[in-house]
């Protein structure tokens, strides 16, 4: 990635202008042509650097009030297979494997989103049954202390 790539990524994290030609405004700020910007963005998308171009909702406002971090104990020999199955569930937004610690045996982490806590429980129970998983824990949030999008290549980061 060259310097311009980093500048593009930095600027594109600013507020997206809701006007007819939004990319033209970003291009102006970057002092490059709109075509150059569009070409580079398309390349990032192809390469997977941009995993999604679009909108993310505030899920509470959109009616998804119950959000649980659900951690699972999955047999190591079935980790890949079961993680992929869990990832297919539409109520799950994130699915990661993670290392364990002596007092913490959970090795797969999923975020479950639903309208109510009870709905979260039903989803988890169903997934447990389908995948023959006995041990899991639902970690409900009590308070959101921070939720932001990462500012990649931001100056403040290196301070």
């Amino acid at each position: 990635m060259d310097l311009l790539d980093k500048q593009i990524i930095r600027i594109m994290q600013d507020e997206f202008p809701l006007v007819k030609e939004p990319y033209k405004e970003f291009a102006k700020k970057l002092n490059i042509s709109e075509q150059e910007l569009l070409n580079r963005l398309r390349i990032y998308k192809e390469e997977g650097k941009i995993r999604k171009m679009g909108a993310v909702l505030r899920h509470v406002e959109a009616g998804f009030r119950a959000n649980a971090l659900c951690a699972w104990v999955v047999p190591v020999d079935k980790l890949d297979e079961i993680a992929q199955k869990l990832a297919q569930c539409p109520s799950i937004s994130h699915c990661y494997d993670r290392n364990t610690t002596p007092d913490w045996p959970y090795n797969i982490y999923t975020m479950i989103h639903a309208h109510t806590r009870q709905e979260c429980e039903v989803i988890a129970e169903k997934l447990a049954k389908e995948n023959n998983l006995q041990q899991y824990t639902m970690l409900y949030s009590v308070k959101e202390w921070k939720k932001t999008s990462m500012r990649y290549f931001d100056e403040a980061e290196d301070e």
Binding site: I9, R51, M53, G54, A55, V56, E61, M150, Y152
Partner: peptide, 16 residues
């Protein structure tokens, strides 16, 4: 009205 948190590119942290 707060329904949309952000519009724009979402980057893959690993790929960056």
């Amino acid at each position: 009205h707060g329904y949309i948190r952000r519009i724009g590119p979402f980057f893959d942290s690993g790929k960056l």
